[in-house]
Amino acid sequence: MSRTLSEAESKKLLESHGVQFLPEELVSGPDEAAAAAQRLGFPVVAKLCGDNIAHKTERGLVRLGLNSAEAVSAATRELLDAAVPGDSALGVLVAPMVDGDRELIAGANRDAQFGPTVLVGVGGVLAEAIEDVAVRLAPITPLDAREMVEQLGAQRLLGEFRGEPPVDVDVLVGILMALSAAVTEPLPDGSLIASVDLNPLIVHRGRPVPVDALVELADPGPGTAAGASGAATSGGGRR
């Protein structure tokens, strides 16, 4: 069984590899949430945060565009009420609301045949249908990262778009390099990252900003690269 880290823990781990997130606060109650929102500046988002919450949006556990202390308190109360025991809820994350018309995704995986990989793609609600992604084997070089971005089909989305400046490719390259390092290097306890999802990266005035993060750890398998089943059987060729 692999296990997922909470959003806060995921972000902390990725920050240690160089992914930059916006300042945010993990709070345990409505009053604390309102105070955090005051410090961060309105509008904010509030999200339930726990070890096992994978589909936050689908379950209504993300509240966007909260514009007042009252709204933040109310949302926090509702989120805590909505938590079920399986979520292993740790509290509520309060973060500045980021706006932008474009969304990207970035991630890392551990492929059964190729080992650690890094991915970048077009994000947003249509991402799965569009499937515009580029993958490379980790570790990657900055040039590999740049070529991943170049490879995407939606180049027009990356240029100037609806009055916003072009996507800052250097920032995106930095994020991909950090993901490459994260998925390549074992954690201090020896465990390995099975997957990382930065979904979405909201492009705010040209800058891709990761607003969510989900890290899944691989099982420490007996003596092998965890999660990578190297047992691909191939009978080889035939006529």
Partner: peptide, 9 residues
């Protein structure tokens, strides 16, 4: 997509 990326790399 992984095989494709490997070729590009």
């Amino acid at each position: 997509r992984t095989f494709d990326g490997m070729c590009a790399q």
